[in-house]
């Protein structure tokens, strides 16, 4: 029951935050044409567009929400805090699979509510403007970039937390890299910034939206490969000596 209440709470937060993000971007651009939602969101040349503070903060909030929602759950499976839980599984593999299932469930839920919030936000924005139509391709591309990016970052975070107990490193990785991509994009050449996986979360940075953007098909393939490989490593093999085996603290 508690789990359901948590899901409802965080889903609502994600949903509302995404609506606010859409509205924040509208505010910046003073009600321009919404024919293509992403064109509206980022302007013709994303790399050159000014990123206003409101949009930055909203993106940071959205990324942080994913981190909060998934890391909170993954950390509950951290071995050194979970001895009494682990021994209830038939073996380590079952335990890691259970943790993995939780991670995938929360990543998918996050994406669903992000998608719904984007739809609702687009609808709210359209109510206030004359809109000829919505172009679905960039919209779906944006959702695809977020989903695959979150899966890729998320599984690496999962692996770091569960097998290396490296919660801080995981959180630096995400939302760290996306934050660098957002905040420093005006100061770093686009060609360099596109190598930052944090940029891969944003469809507007892709070659489908701007020239010189990251090649979206190749990036999707890389993310799927990383996700698959790290998933297998996470679940099928107990690669690391548990934290209790490393002298992070004196044994009793």
């Amino acid at each position: 029951m508690r789990d359901k209440r948590e899901i409802v709470f965080w889903s609502s937060v994600i949903f509302l935050a995404q609506i606010l993000l859409m509205l924040a971007q509208m505010t910046q651009y003073g009600g321009e044409d919404l024919y293509q939602p992403l064109k509206f969101l980022y302007g013709d040349g994303y790399g050159r567009a000014k990123l206003h503070n409101v949009e930055q903060y909203m993106w940071l909030l959205e990324l942080s929400l994913y981190c909060i929602v998934t890391v909170r759950k993954i950390v509950q499976y951290k071995e050194e805090d979970s001895y009494m839980m682990i021994v209830r599984y038939p073996d380590f593999r079952s335990y890691y699979r259970a943790a993995y299932g939780t991670f995938v469930k929360y990543t998918v839920l996050y994406q669903i509510f992000l998608f719904l919030g984007t739809l609702a936000g687009t609808g709210v924005v359209r109510l206030g403007h004359s809109v000829r139509g919505v172009c679905w391709q960039p919209f779906l591309l944006s959702q695809g970039c977020m989903f695959l990016g979150n899966l890729c970052f998320g599984i690496i975070m999962f692996y770091l937390i569960l097998h290396f107990n490296a919660v801080k490193l995981a959180v630096v990785l995400y939302p760290g890299l996306p934050v660098i991509a957002i905040v420093l994009r005006e100061r770093i050449p686009e060609a360099v910034s596109n190598w930052n996986p944090g940029s891969w979360l944003m469809a507007a940075r892709s070659s489908r939206m701007v020239s010189g953007g990251f090649p979206v098909g190749i990036v999707f393939l890389i993310e799927i490969i990383i996700f698959t490989a790290v998933s297998i490593l996470s679940v099928e093999k107990r690669l690391c000596v548990p934290v209790s085996g490393k002298q992070r603290h004196l044994p009793k």
Binding site: E79, Y83, I86, V87, V241, P242, S244, G245, P251, K252
Partner: peptide, 12 residues
């Protein structure tokens, strides 16, 4: 505790 963890299987 190390001994107990070895018996339980948490340490090899």
């Amino acid at each position: 505790t190390v001994l107990m963890k070895c018996i339980c299987g948490f340490l090899q």
